[in-house]
Design a protein around this nucleic acid. Structure first.
Lengths: 244, 244
DNA sequence: CGAACGCTTGAGAGGCATCAAGAAACGTGG
DNA sequence: CCACGTTTCTTGATGCCTCTCAAGCGTTCG
């Protein structure tokens, strides 16, 4: 078997054919390394490449004129970075390494043949974008009408769910390498409010921290309270094109 | 020529072939009519169909347990409704008619052949989802860190930009059939705050109202102030698969 | 060992939600 | 075409939540 992260993630959803595996593995031939805080692609730069995340986290963010930063998306191993910028010649967001990072770049022109020859993979990619959109709606709901505590709690539940797909969350523990400032940028809160929310969740016995690891004590209870639904566990593939 | 709304919208971005036009027109064979406030598809219902919007507006929204409603997406003539629910067997959002409405439903299984035979159309659909994602990030930015006045102003600019693509905004005027309550649901504000924001924009000479029509007096100036960028005007098609 | 960086906590200010009530517009049926 | 009820818009008063500013502490890394 291949040790491709992308294959690992996709296999969670459908049984990949050997042809598909080979083709996907080819996207991960080159590898680039980045250190935490490195900028992978700056806002306004040309979006000629797509990246597969091999190890580490990175995030896409936009800075507005008052200097406030908003994290638009966070990527984990197995994710495809840059699909959301396909329609733009220059990037609308800045990609920054959240941890030390290994990325596999491939030119976005490689998608041409995939679109023609691998309609089922395209359908799966398409499905992913809809999952991400649903998650983004959850974020909108959180930012618009939930308390700071609930925003942060929901963010942790979402993160854990995403990591679980590729087996990066073991049991109730998962890594949380983002600083409280970055968490704030992700959920639209100030550092101070994030800190107070975390301490409150901790005091209530919902979470526990141990270095950069986080434990959600009773995921089901917290999830029910915050109306969290794991959008990433399963996709409906009934409309996927059949294999030839 | 066909009078398909979908073809009209897509033609804004690429030159469709005759084959593509015929195929798209076939999606609009059936037509259903709804009155304002009618529910087109309820949350939790099966997502077996996709719809092309022929005339009117509709919106997808989610209601949480405290009864607060969030509008996740708004659809205009020429839009495809339901693509964002493709990956789910049952709908995560509720679709409601914002005005009287004419929709053309087609089964989502019809996508199978499109995925196989029309990779260029699929690429274009894919591009649309990335545009919508970018717009959603703008909304996140607005909800998270902008004032009520700016949220509402940005919402108007975005709406006008979307309508302009299909020629539904003439000059600086465009229709705004949504009540202030619905606008509030869309941008995450209370009705009261929306009203105050509108009156402020009006007092500042940024907008003018005439029944259900809205005029943005100096779009460039307001756009620059709110850091608005029209994401829907143009797509990069360099990575699209070529025609056979 | 010193200097960033990240976490924690307090105090004060401001903006938006909420509650409430009246005015205007709309729609519907007599 | 008018009368009435409903929806929508408008405005004021009050309170709460989060932001901002500020300072101290702990930790990590060069």
């Amino acid at each position: 078997m291949t040790n491709s992260c992308l294959v690992a993630k996709l296999s969670h959803y459908i049984n990949l054919t050997a042809t598909e595996c080979v083709l996907l593995a080819r996207l991960e031939e080159a590898t680039e390394h980045y250190s935490r805080r490195d900028i992978v692609l700056d806002q306004g730069a040309e979006t000629s490449d797509i990246y597969v995340v091999k190890t580490g986290w990175l995030y896409g963010h936009v800075r507005n004129s008052d200097g406030v930063d908003l994290i638009a998306e966070i990527f984990y191993p197995g994710d495809l970075v840059g699909l959301s910028q396909l329609a733009f010649e220059t990037s609308t967001v800045c990609y920054t390494a959240a941890t030390d990072l290994a990325l596999c770049p491939f030119p976005k022109n490689s998608l041409k043949t995939i679109f023609i020859e691998q309609p089922r993979l395209v359908a799966l990619f398409f499905a992913f974008t809809t999952l991400e959109r649903a998650t983004m709606i959850d974020r909108l709901r959180a930012m618009g009408q939930m308390s700071a505590r609930d925003c942060v709690g929901l963010f942790f539940l979402q993160t854990k769910a995403r990591l679980s797909i590729t087996g990066l969350a073991t049991g109730r523990w998962f890594p949380m390498p983002l600083s409280q400032e970055l968490i704030g940028n992700a959920v639209g809160l100030s550092t101070v409010s994030v800190n107070r929310a975390i301490r409150q969740l901790e005091a209530e016995g919902h979470i526990r921290r141990e270095g950069r690891m986080l434990e959600i004590m009773r995921p089901e209870i917290l999830g029910r309270e915050l109306e969290f639904f794991d959008r990433h566990y399963k996709v409906d593939s009934s409309w996927f094109p059949n294999l030839d």
